[in-house]
């Protein structure tokens, strides 16, 4: 089954962030709690953890992209 990963709300005051970098590549095994990617908000670099166990299927955004809360970021095969 494919699960979609959407951009979480990482900062109470904004809904748009700079996408930093991927910590997992397509084909990599991911476990719940593993850092999937990094996002730059106003006050921090947030490391977003996976909420699923599975295999990273596809990355839908790239470093430097502006992403909005709720945007599709990745898919994970669980």
């Amino acid at each position: 089954m494919i699960k979609e990963v959407h951009m979480p709300k990482l900062s109470p005051k904004s809904n748009e962030y700079f996408f930093g970098k991927w910590d997992k590549q397509p084909g990599d095994k991911v476990k719940t709690g593993d850092v999937l990617f990094e996002v730059e908000t106003e006050k921090a670099i947030s490391q977003v953890e996976s909420q699923e166990d599975g295999i990273l299927k596809a990355q839908e955004v790239a470093t430097g992209d502006t992403t909005k809360v709720g945007d599709l970021v990745a898919t994970i095969e669980v």
């Binding site: 990482l10 730059e40 947030s46 953890e49 909420q51």
Partner: peptide, 15 residues
């Protein structure tokens, strides 16, 4: 540019 020590983790379900 933000330094690397400004990295924080984020568990969406708990937040």
């Amino acid at each position: 540019a933000k330094p690397s020590w400004l990295k924080v983790t984020y568990d969406q379900k708990k937040v």
